[in-house]
Design a protein around this nucleic acid. Sequence first.
RNA 1: GGGAGUUUAGCUCAGUUGGUAGAGUACCUGCCUUACAAGCAGAGGGUCAUAGGUUCGAGUCCUAUAACUCCCACCA
Length: 798
Amino acid sequence: MLDKYNFRESEPKWEKFWQENNVNSFDKNSKKEIFSIDTPPPTVSGKIHIGHIFSYSQADFVARYKRMRGYNVLYPFGFDDNGLPTERLVEKEYGVKAHELSREEFQEMCMNTVEKYEKEFKELFIRDGISADWAHSYNTISKRVQKLSQKSFLDLVKKGHAYYGEKPAIWCPECQVSIAQAELESKDIASTFNHIKFYISGSKDYLEIATTRPELLSACVCVFVNPDDKRYAHLVGKKVIVPLYDFEVPVLTDEKADIEKGTGAVMCCTFGDETDLYWQQKYNLPIKEAISDGGRMTSLAGKYEGLKIKKAREEIIADLKLNDLLISQEEIVHAVATHERCGTPMEIKIKKQWFISLVDNKKLFLENGEKINWYPNFMYSRYSNWVDNVDRDWCVSRQRYFGVPIPVWYCSKCGKIILADEKDLPVNPLTTKPSKTCECGSTDFIPESDVFDTWQTSSITPQINAMWGEDDEMYKKIMPMSLRPNAHDIIRTWDFYTIAKSYYHSNCLPWKNVMVSGFVMADKNEKISKSKSNSKMSPEMLLNEKSADVTRYWASTGSLGRDIVFSEEEFKNGAKLVNKIWNASKFVLSFLENYEPKQTKLLPMDEWIIAKFNQMQKYFIDYFEKYEIGLAMAELERFFWNFCDNYIEIAKNRLYKPEIYGESAKESAQFACFVVLKEMLKMFAIYLPHITEEIYQNYFVRFENIKSIHNTEISAIAVKTPEEIISNGDEVCDIVSKIRRYKSENNLSLKEEIELLTIQGYSNFVKRVEYDIKAVGNVKEIKYQDGDKNIDIKMLNK
RNA sequence: GGGAGUUUAGCUCAGUUGGUAGAGUACCUGCCUUACAAGCAGAGGGUCAUAGGUUCGAGUCCUAUAACUCCCACCA
């Protein structure tokens, strides 16, 4: 019935079949309970790596499980295509710089690139058997999503959660864009502590100050010492002279000046770091800008104007040396906040920007986060840890091109902010004008040219999926969504912002459950990274060389939330399992040709395997309800190998030889084989959708009358089995195992005939299945006696 | 410095409510058994990180400690 299995032919065949037959479709009109998944829209940045395959497969297991447990599953799939990653990709692919082109030209390039990659991504995910409903897909740059993103923004403005303000923002001089706190990454960078002379005004003495950023001397506004620092008490209130620039700054005191650090005296520049910002605000210090948006020195820096930060630092140090102002240098490694995308140390710049308030509502975000079930549970502390530490509002303006426009204008006369009308969305303020005149009567407006941070849009994926503002009934039905699956790196961005937005928009949770998957590591302590190209296998290689099913098996093996090190070895078990499933099915089905399933009087060992199956399924379901997909699989797998190695070995004699054991003994085995294999395959279908479909379509489809195995339901086998059957049957396996051990220890073939088997101390149950024991052990005669549990074997030729 | 995770067989990991230490893999031994040698059967292999405590009984609960990992903070 089944022949050879060739995954290279079979897998794409069924993938096509599923798409054509809408096997994974969400049914809007169904009365079934909805299970909805807020799939992470992958960033279009060129490559999908095996980490994606790993975590998307894990989410897919849940989708398939829920579908087969009778839920109406909404499994949408989006692409996050706007934003910096795409721009960088396009700049690289076309060899252009965004700012050298017109906005339209550049956007068109982006659109083309995005389209190309999204097609590739989609094909790859389909190839992995991801059962998303592609009719419910979206991309963040589409008109529809732009509209929702802008609607979200306007809603926040109206509710007072988004505001326009001139505030210090975190600035990346490399990307020339403002970034959010969540986009910072702390990096250990080698630097030099430079001990510099600040002469005391009107004196030959100097104050020694240690700094890693001498290039900011021109932006120095004062010097701080600790109020308790006796060394400098005499200088407080005096003035010191900034070296090279020869202007005076006051010496002030503040607790934040650390006596232990450096020399205990610190220069405050606007802005070298967050502490400078703190001091500037606390003491209302003047603001001096020494660094331009592009990371070059401004005219304030005098002769260093135009130099890049690093170069300016070198030259200033050289000049300090030359003028005998440098006392000493000390090599250090210190943590520096950098832009996670490019690794450039951040700067602080005062900019007029749009912000979404976060700091004021931290408590509510924590409370809402706590209401969500986090799997594994400890991942909640990642979230709460982050929220606790948030100390700035979310800057959402980006001085970039390919993104959702901020739908506002500013009156050129009175400066009033004009918001776009919701009915006009999506709006591009650069190409359209407000529909009415300004209150001051002016009709001249300055359009906002910034676009949104990409997270401003990605943080409303539940709203996008639930048709917010488009279908109220659907929105009420879907929100909060059932599940958010994502890896642990984006808890602080995607999870956090999404929780915040849902609270602001609808005072609700975005989802009930979060399932956090681990990372695939290239090596211990080494993340897979594109730049290092340390990933030994690409997703394409895995899918084409190992098969999608085997790759998915690999994805099922890790513990939820824990990182795993990639190892090709781990694919061996999957390959063995797939092969075994095929062979076992082939064998079992060879006895089921022309079989018509009918309830028969079952023999005990057939009841046993059914009872074992039902028991295993309970554990399986328990694990799945906790999103423990790996443990669920282990449970199923263990049962399956037991089914093969014990049950089939027992049953096959009755299947082969009805003339000896009787027709009804065969029918009993047939029934058990039929139901157990069928139900087992359904469970395997969650993980191994292709091979199980192949077997199902070859045989079981005509009994189930359902077009795909993936549309069937997982359920217990409805056969009543006696209470004691499991332990009784296990005892039989124990006896069989002892027989095998005897033969193995005596270097005998397992088919060697046993003249006399004496079974001692086992329950009476074994007598009832004597024929099975005889058959599987090739035993001529069995005797029973009382005593401690044991067996004795007599061979003829011994 | 704050938060979290991990530590069980050579390796990768299970171990539910406390009750005689488990699987897979590797190694070793045997078996061509009328599905599968990508198979089957079997053997050896563990002071459950350490030290205390609770308990009749602790891998499991409590307290400390150590090592490794991750997140956050640390830019003078």
